[in-house]
Write a protein that binds this DNA or RNA. Sequence first.
DNA 1: GAGTGGTCTAGACCACTTC
DNA 2: AAGTGGTCTAGACCACTCC
Lengths: 232, 232
Amino acid sequence: MTTISVDEPHREQKPQRNLAQKLVQEILQKIESKVLVPGDKLPKEADIMQEHGVSRTVVREALQRLQASGNVETKHGIGTFVLNNKGQGPMDLSFDYVNDAVEILELRIGLEVEIAGLAALRRTDEQLVEIRKALDALRAIDRNGHVSDAGSADFNFHLLIAKSAGNHYFVDIMQHMENSLVPRKRIDVSHVNHEHEEVYTAIERGDSYAARAAMRLHLTNSRERFLKLARQ
Amino acid sequence: MTTISVDEPHREQKPQRNLAQKLVQEILQKIESKVLVPGDKLPKEADIMQEHGVSRTVVREALQRLQASGNVETKHGIGTFVLNNKGQGPMDLSFDYVNDAVEILELRIGLEVEIAGLAALRRTDEQLVEIRKALDALRAIDRNGHVSDAGSADFNFHLLIAKSAGNHYFVDIMQHMENSLVPRKRIDVSHVNHEHEEVYTAIERGDSYAARAAMRLHLTNSRERFLKLARQ
DNA sequence: GAGTGGTCTAGACCACTTC
DNA sequence: AAGTGGTCTAGACCACTCC
């Protein structure tokens, strides 16, 4: 009886390319099947490496995708946790004011993230100057405490960026949304200004990737700030 | 008393974290200052490594960001090339039909990429079934050659995904855009179907990251196919 | 077959959080 | 100080393109 002796642990020859993609799907399945529920902590990276027999590069690539998806959240020095986006429905609390405002914010994320990316690639120097002016005006208003004017100044900043994206449809929709925007009141202005600056500098240096990331961060933070206020 | 024994070849004078981000900005500056112009080939990764004194990980991270930004394009086995998004203006060819259609496609990219990501997180099983039906109907139409119906069937597929995103604003805008959509004619149907399948499977398994990527790929490819047709 | 990008591994050191 | 994620290095092998 001749058994072909293979010293390998097993004929596990899966030259599978894209181990990260596979890991993503396996973790998503654990979330889908309730093995992992919102709030749960994922195993530490070293454990995931051993469990799936892959290197840390693969684990981190998978976790980064799950972060970008909004499925999990990673906290430096603590761990990675499952978020509660799926499962509790399309935030069907009720058709009230809060829910409507959040939906508007979600719409703006889709539009303005793309707008910021295009503006970084296409803005003229003249348009950049106008955006800078709007930003300075907004900061001046905040310093003087004329909060009532801040809403329209904030909108103007976003609208000027839309006009720098070189696509009039974006401008049209933004203008139609003007009356639906959440009024700014007692919001942590320093955070907003810092986020605006991040968006501006990315557009200034033509960094589309950073512009998109900065705009997304700004709008998701705005959503969180609004929800925090609404719950009070 | 513990002596930290670390073999240091030399005094590393740059403990700089985020080398990739720095590399991105340096390459963007070369594009901005016309040292690199659209169509130019970047040095191969090994050369960039040596030139900047960083590992390949850093180089590849930087190039991936520049790809995501639309600043460069990488071709497997060939090289990385500078794209011409910046500098030649907001595609100010003229206000003709072609330009308008492209702007609509850009708007759809912003909206539908976000829609696909949300749909992957929120879709119900019932909604998934409806999307599957629309996809099958579309394939049947393509097989039978009833190209005239394909446009509305295609729109229906996209609309059903929007309805699965749990935000009625997205649905409203999509419906308003229905009449503005580019009619499908003599387009490479097999590619479109394959791209639709990619979007569907990502939404099916709740992979928001993949859903976004698949939708973006589908719509940018649609734009390229349209432009190719328009130039004929 | 040579050249170039794509994926993966193993390990080192840094930064943040908690005890 | 211990634990965990963040960044970076060096090197191996695979996949695609072109000659």
